[in-house]
Amino acid sequence: MTYSIGLGDIVVHPGVALVASAADEDLWPLITAGHHGAFTVLYERHAEAVWNYAYRLTASWSEADDLLSVVFLTAWRRRRDLRLVHGSALPWLYVVTTNVCRGERRRLARLFRALPRLLAPDTPDHAERLAEHDAAGDRLRRVLAAVDRLPRAEREAVQLCLLGGTPVADAAAMWGISASSVHSRLARARARLHDLVLEDPDA
């Protein structure tokens, strides 16, 4: 049963058609006003990109599966903060994904610290271990371990632009800074990643 009570909050122009082809900028005012149908259209459009991005932040497809709905529920809860970048909600959804992943890791870390004897840390079943123990996944995990050690501004630039594939111009608009600043953060991040590898060849 889909609840669409948000319609009661607004007076919709008779010409408004909530179709899958409606642009993010068409959906945006409706979502901000609480329109569930419009948000569902946004979900269907960006679910795949968010799922892939969640994988690139976690190196785990099963975590990406779980995070997908959490990201969109969080996005719904924070819909008043929704920002379009060049007509797209995707960069903002990537930011929400990054925040959710970071929050989830903090939460799990707290849980493991609190319950060291009761909960064994991360014991995936055999099938998952086999499925995820691939070379690409290993490479990604090494990348993420190094990226996690970057200062926040550089880490977020790497996550959004290099892991998420967001154009530098969109990331700049998202953060309200110049494109050259984003380029600069990325350059510093690359240099620092290089240094991190020299410090720790296993990274």
């Binding site: 049963m1 889909t2 609840y3 569902t40 979900y43 269907e44 679910a47 795949e48 799922w51 892939n52 994988y55 690139r56 599966d65 997908l68 709905s69 969109f72 529920l73 719904w76 690409a136 996944g137 490479r139 990604l140 090494r142 990348v143 190094a146 990226v147 790497v158 290099l162 892991l163 690359r190 990643l193 290089h194 590898v197 990274a203």
Partner: peptide, 26 residues
């Protein structure tokens, strides 16, 4: 240096994952 240019390729979202997440969202 970790190779940021050799990331795993994007995958199509499996229909079951999309459906399950949609169900949780709803």
């Amino acid at each position: 240096m970790p190779d940021l240019g050799d990331l795993p390729a994007h995958r199509p979202l499996p229909a079951t994952v999309r459906r399950d997440a949609r169900r949780r969202l709803q």
